[in-house]
Simulated assay, not measured.
Amino acid sequence: MDDQTLWQLVRFLHLLAMAFFVGGQLLLAAAVVPVLRGNDPSGAMRRIARSFGWGTLVAIGVLFATGAAMAGQYGRWSDPQLHVKLALVGLVAALIVWHMRRPDLRVIDGLIFLLSLVIVWLGIGLAH
């Protein structure tokens, strides 16, 4: 595998993990929560959210590993925009763990989603 193909693969994995993370949040907010809220005697929403939470933590791990590799490859470690993005990623990871322990705190959902959108925005800026 040549160098260019390797870095395309790393970027692909980064974008795939980001799509899982943000896309899953959109699916939960737009479809799962409105359908199951208040009408979920089996606890399906809690199980879905918990599973997604674990998947999200895996996605954050992939994002961290691939992002760190790309930051090194493209000389971005001194970029203040990257520093802000990394701080927000850390904050989102902490919020996810908190939310998994306290799923009744709905405001955490909104914070995670808004911060995720800011992270994506910063990532687009770093990519160009």
Rank of each mutant, 00 (worst) to 15 (best):
R76K: 15
M18W: 05
A19E: 01
G123K: 01
F64D: 14
R37L: 12
L86F: 14
A19D: 00
W77A: 10
K85C: 03
G43N: 01
A68F: 14
R102Y: 12
P103V: 00
L15M: 05
V92L: 04
G72C: 12
R50T: 05
Q4R: 08
I96C: 11
G125S: 06
S78P: 01
L91T: 01
D79T: 10
L111S: 05
V84T: 14
G43A: 02
W121P: 04
L28H: 07
L86G: 11
L57Q: 10
G43W: 06
I48P: 04
L26G: 11
F21D: 00
V32G: 03
V10W: 01
I96W: 12
Q25K: 03
L16S: 09
I60N: 00
D3V: 12
H14T: 00
H99S: 07
S78Q: 14
V84F: 13
P34I: 04
M18L: 08
G90Y: 14
M45D: 06
W54I: 06
M100F: 09
Q4K: 13
M70P: 04
V107A: 07
M100H: 05
H128V: 04
F20K: 02
F113I: 08
R46K: 11
H83W: 15
D109M: 00
L117H: 02
G61R: 09
P41E: 14
V58Y: 02
N39C: 06
A17W: 03
D2K: 09
G61A: 14
V10C: 03
F21T: 11
L117F: 12
V35F: 09
G90T: 10
Q73M: 09
L26R: 07
R101M: 12
N39M: 10
G23F: 11
P103N: 04
F12L: 10
F20H: 05
G55I: 00
G38E: 08
Q25G: 13
F113P: 01
L88V: 13
Q4L: 12
A65H: 01
G61S: 06
V120K: 01
D3W: 11
W77Q: 13
G38A: 07
W98V: 03
